[in-house]
């Protein structure tokens, strides 16, 4: 039996991991998935109490709350496997007889696919039901999401999930604070880099601007792609070398 990857052992490990996630983390994902419903009830009850008429939130405000819940879900990802830095829980995880690659793959599937699907599907289904019951709310998020580029969304999603997962595995304490702080620092650095590039040219023609936008898009794509590779390698390396 291979020490690196064995499909039977991986499927055993994955189902074990799935059970643990369902038991320990699914409730948080479901709660965030119900964020839209909580906002809806709050909005309606506030309107009924203050203005004595039934008013439901429009698409823009629901989309705003959805983005907030997505952000909170991203932060929650730092805690999904953040227990690995805990002495007792981390040691228990490392001593389970499965290879590092199998644990890594299970972790990636759980973080990038399973838990986000649980959260997003719950959120969008509740939103669709609310839109069906209260047609004045306008378009449901499902329909609005159809206009976005799925490819771009997926790439950014994978990048973000890996970033927060990595932060959760690296920082022992204040995982959320450090993941936000480092995200802000990286954002500022790249913005400064971009601005300094633009400052080189004092005048821009229409063609220059189009060219710059195209270049920025290309550079952004390369950076996010490279980020995904680096973060995935970082997560694997951390799993391989973590000590307790």
């Amino acid at each position: 039996m291979s020490e690196t990857f064995n499909f039977k052992r991986f499927s055993t490990y994955f189902s074990y991991d799935l059970t643990q996630m369902w038991r320990n983390k699914a409730m948080t994902a479901l709660l965030l998935g119900g964020g839209g419903l909580i906002f809806f009830l709050f909005y309606v009850s506030c309107n009924l109490t203050l203005f004595q008429h039934l008013k439901t939130p429009d698409l823009a405000s629901r989309a705003g709350i959805f983005m907030l819940c997505v952000f909170l879900f991203n932060l929650f990802t730092t805690r999904t496997y953040g227990f690995l830095t805990d002495k007792k829980k981390g040691a228990d995880f490392l001593m389970v007889p499965a290879s590092t690659l199998e644990k890594f793959l299970s972790m990636i599937i759980m973080t990038i696919i399973v838990l986000p699907l649980l959260f997003i599907l719950t959120y969008l289904c509740i939103d669709a039901i609310l839109c069906l019951c209260f047609p004045l709310s306008g378009e449901c998020l499902f329909q609005a999401a159809g206009e976005l580029s799925i490819k771009n969304f997926l790439v950014i999603h994978v990048h973000n999930m890996l970033y927060y997962l990595f932060c959760g595995l690296v920082f022992k304490r204040n995982k959320i604070f450090w993941s936000i702080a480092i995200g802000i620092i990286i954002g500022i650095l790249f913005s400064l880099f971009g601005i300094s590039g633009l400052m080189d040219n004092s005048t821009f023609s229409q063609d220059d601007i189009l060219q710059i936008v195209a270049q920025l898009k290309r550079a952004g794509g390369i950076l996010i792609g490279a980020g995904i590779v680096v973060l995935a390698c970082g997560v694997y390396y951390r799993l391989k070398t973590i000590m307790h």
Binding site: M1, E3, N6, R9, R23, N24, K88, K89, A91, D92, L94, M95, V96, P97, A98, S99, T100, E102
Partner: peptide, 23 residues
Amino acid sequence: FDRQPSLLQEQFYLPEEVLSVHA
């Protein structure tokens, strides 16, 4: 430290303070 599954299957480490699980 290679943490090979075949070796992990042949060993068990019981720490002084054990983990309580929700099950």
